[in-house]
Amino acid sequence: MFKLILSDPSIFKTSFEAISSIVDEVQIEVDSDGLRLNAIDRSHITYVHLELKERLFDVFQCDEPIKLNVDTEELMKVLKRSKSDDVMELTVDGGSLIVTFEGAIKKTFKVKLIDLEYETPESPSIEYPVKITIPIKTLKESIQDIEIVADRVEFNIDQDFLKLKAVGEFSDAEVEYLHGEKVTEDARAIFAIENIKEMLKAEKFADTTYISLGDDMPLTLTLELLNEEGELSFLLAPRIEE
């Protein structure tokens, strides 16, 4: 028996806004603990991890572990048809994922399961020297400030500030955010703004974002739901200066 019911589909929709802009296909794994997925884009620049714990769902029936391989663009088209006050139900029938949204009207979509073209490696565990929190809206606005001058951004964290800097052809920009965390080391790395914007499509997932950084290390951006009921995290490879 496989049936998941979520009274607020926006968590799913928001997650897939970002996921579908990064990867073409995903394997969604569901077992008695919850739902999770790991995926990496074809160029191996961005890794994405989503985890939704069993207790987040209003109904969670999953008798045996199941793997659902879906085309993210197709699933996103369906999820876009949900309204925030709809109740979402996921079931499986034959080779399809059945997605229903029930509000004033009931909509049923059958999304074909696919064969995966490539495998996703396990999430790497990286030790970071620096970790801070920032409201995701603040991060998004800062990136919008920076992108008017350049297509890449330097993240610089010291004991007081997160500084985002860019040097453009005609203008330079710098945004400073007082992070208020205990940081004992400095960290600096450069990233493509286009990739950061893909991750920020998940802004409605959770208000608080954790940034982990080290010199020329990947940027880890973690969005956590209240009571650790869910987590969406990204790992973005840096640009390296030559």
Binding site: S43, H44, P121, P124, I126, R152, A192, P218, A237, R239
Partner: peptide
Amino acid sequence: KSRQSSLDVFF
């Protein structure tokens, strides 16, 4: 000048 690195070195 900078080049895009890959996550492969971290796996």
